[in-house]
Simulated scan of single mutants.
Amino acid sequence: MSRRREPVPFAFVAEADTFRSNVAPPPPEPSSAGQIAGRWLLAVTIVAALVGALVIGMPALSLDHTAPSQQSQASQSSEGR
């Protein structure tokens, strides 16, 4: 199945990469004090959540070396009955 190659009928598609506008966009508005405070509050909340998750998750990540000795003591005391 062969396809026919036809030229692109829209010339602006080929020239879109080279087009430059002489109109500059308006400068961004300066942030208000409320917006800056909101960004800081959001950042502090995210950092606190990550630290809290790390603090809560650390016991699950640590190796518990005392657990086997407690289990062995419990099994020895049940055998002695």
Rank of each mutant, 00 (worst) to 15 (best):
T18V: 07
A11I: 11
E6S: 12
S72P: 03
V51P: 01
S77R: 12
S62H: 08
P59E: 01
R4S: 12
V44C: 05
G38Q: 01
A11L: 14
P28C: 07
V55N: 03
N22R: 15
L54H: 05
S72T: 08
A48I: 04
G52K: 01
I36L: 15
V8K: 15
A60S: 15
A14Y: 00
S31A: 15
P7C: 06
V23S: 09
G80K: 11
F19M: 08
R81F: 13
G34I: 00
E29W: 02
A33N: 09
S21V: 04
I56N: 01
V55R: 09
F19S: 06
S2H: 08
T18L: 14
A16V: 04
A33L: 13
P68L: 08
A33V: 10
A37E: 11
A67D: 00
P59Y: 01
R3V: 09
P27V: 01
P28D: 10
S32Y: 04
F19E: 05
L61P: 01
F10Y: 13
T45A: 03
A11T: 00
P26F: 00
A74F: 06
P68Q: 07
S75L: 12
G34Y: 03
V47K: 03
S72V: 09
I46Y: 00
Q35P: 03
A14M: 09
D64K: 13
A33I: 08
P9H: 02
P7I: 04
A16W: 03
E79L: 13
Q76E: 13
G52H: 03
S77F: 04
Q76C: 05
T66M: 06
V47E: 01
G34E: 11
F10C: 08
G57E: 02
L41C: 07
S62I: 10
R4V: 14
I36N: 02
F12M: 05
G52V: 06
M1R: 10
W40C: 00
F10W: 11
P25I: 01
V13K: 06
S78I: 12
